[in-house]
Design a protein around this nucleic acid. Structure first.
Ligand SMILES: [Mn+2]
Ligand SMILES: [Mn+2]
Ligand SMILES: [Mn+2]
Ligand SMILES: [Mn+2]
Lengths: 147, 147
DNA sequence: ACAAGAATGTAGCCAAGGCTTTAAAAATAC
DNA sequence: GTATTTTTAAAGCCTTGGCTACATTCTTGT
């Protein structure tokens, strides 16, 4: 069943696929923290390091580092011992991420995934859903709604 | 619109969701390399470091490190200057990963995502699809096939 | 007002996964 | 059979994202 070593069935864009997946992953933490900070400000009026850390399931120094990266990238601002706030750009990102998260969960449920599981999986999946795919999901959900 | 700081709308299992996403991500590279090594052996009779690297879109020292980790985890074996081979466990993983990858692509396409985009996104998405979700995808595809 | 507790900051460790550079070995061409 | 090219190996650097341990600063209760 082994083929001739000469031929090569690999899709020519395979490296790009992996590179794309790695790029998406590099954004994932930024996205989750931005969304979380936005959630906390909405729910509790401010986003404190302790709360961010506890909801993300990490220790507080890890949360501090992530916030430092958000600040470095111009997505958040904060001063020592005060809460964390999002810049306009950060708030914008958070909003897009939140909407995408919802769409992903909705699509999973629409396709038969149990809601609990949908929420679980969406947390990782969302970061790899491209604009094109997101649009397709929305069309599918619209069509299903207008059933 | 700001709520009372007392209350807390966060789902109680939110930390677990993020931890689960991180755990899935930690497996992602192992999974992709196992699948790739399996592909190369099928297509070309052997999996050489150079070919692994070029298909993964990384430099060869990076591929060497990844293979070292696969070996450390008992998924692959290799000797200097010979190709890389999968253990039974590694081959098993590769087969599951390959099947899951196909299912994810198929579901995306079934839901209206263009095939090219489906292939792109699946490379990242697949690693976050749980068993439960995968089963749901299969049921959906079966139902659609028997439309 | 101040002591105790909670929150935050800081330093430093680790593993993973990228990279470049240099060296050795193998394969190929002549 | 030797020289050149290709492949592999090895060393070492960097960033990210986890962690623990310790120090500092707020906040709160009395
Ligand atoms: Mn997420
Ligand atoms: Mn999310
Ligand atoms: Mn993949
Ligand atoms: Mn794959």
């Amino acid at each position: 069943m082994t083929k001739d070593p000469e031929d090569n069935d690999a899709p020519p864009n395979q490296p790009e696929r992996f590179q794309q997946a790695r790029a998406a992953q590099a954004m994932a933490i930024l996205e989750d923290y931005a969304e979380m900070i936005s959630d906390l400000i909405e729910e509790m009026g401010e986003a404190r390091i302790t709360d961010i850390a506890s909801r993300m399931g990490v220790t507080h120094p890890t949360a501090t580092k992530a916030v430092a990266r958000l600040k470095r990238e111009g997505l958040a601002v904060s001063r020592p011992y005060r809460g964390v706030f999002l810049t306009d750009e950060g708030a914008d990102l958070a909003e897009r991420v939140r909407a995408r998260h919802r769409t992903v969960v909705d699509l999973l449920v629409a396709v038969g995934v149990p809601p609990e599981t949908a929420e679980m999986d969406a947390e990782g999946l969302e970061h790899h859903v491209s604009e094109t795919t997101l649009k397709a999901f929305e069309r599918y959900l619209d069509a299903a709604a207008a059933k």
